[in-house]
Lab assay of single mutants.
Amino acid sequence: MLYRITVRNADGEKLEIVVEMSEDEVRALAEELRKAGYEVRVEPIPEGEEP
């Protein structure tokens, strides 16, 4: 499935990426980023919607 991941650092800089991963993989990635001090938001992209 496609997911949009938005990551912000302490300075407020934002990075937005689209990935194709399983829900478990995305959850693990988000958890690791949060542990590293980043603010993370994950949104699933519905099938048929443009990323």
Rank of each mutant, 00 (worst) to 15 (best):
Y3L: 03
K14R: 11
G48Y: 10
V19H: 02
K14G: 06
M1H: 05
V19F: 03
E31L: 15
K14I: 12
E43R: 07
R27E: 10
G37I: 00
G48C: 03
D24T: 11
A10G: 12
E16L: 12
E32M: 15
T6G: 02
A10N: 14
V40W: 01
E49Q: 09
N9C: 03
E31C: 15
I5G: 00
L33W: 15
D24E: 12
E49C: 04
T6I: 09
Y38E: 01
V40K: 00
E39M: 13
D11T: 12
E13Q: 13
E23R: 05
L2M: 14
M1S: 05
E49S: 10
R34G: 05
Y3I: 02
A28R: 10
E23S: 08
G37M: 02
D24G: 09
E47K: 14
L33T: 01
P51H: 08
E25T: 07
G12K: 03
P44F: 08
P44L: 08
T6E: 05
M1N: 06
L33S: 01
E23T: 09
R41G: 05
A28Q: 11
L15D: 05
V26D: 00
E13T: 12
M1G: 06
A30S: 10
E43L: 12
P44D: 04
M1V: 07
M21N: 02
V19C: 04
E23Q: 10
R4T: 02
S22N: 07
V18L: 10
I5A: 00
R8Y: 15
D11F: 10
E49K: 09
A36F: 13
G12W: 03
R4C: 02
E13D: 10
V7C: 04
Y3G: 00
G12L: 04
A30Q: 05
R41S: 10
V26T: 03
L33A: 02
I45R: 04
A10W: 12
N9D: 03
R4G: 01
S22K: 11
A28N: 09
E16D: 07
E39V: 14
R4L: 04
K35F: 10
L15N: 13
M1F: 13
I17R: 06
E20T: 12
Y3Q: 01
P46M: 11
A28K: 07
R8V: 11
G37F: 10
D24K: 05
N9H: 07
M21E: 01
P51D: 11
D11R: 13
A10L: 13
G48M: 14
E43P: 00
T6D: 02
R41M: 06
N9R: 15
G37P: 01
A10F: 09
G48Q: 15
E43I: 12
G48E: 08
V42N: 00
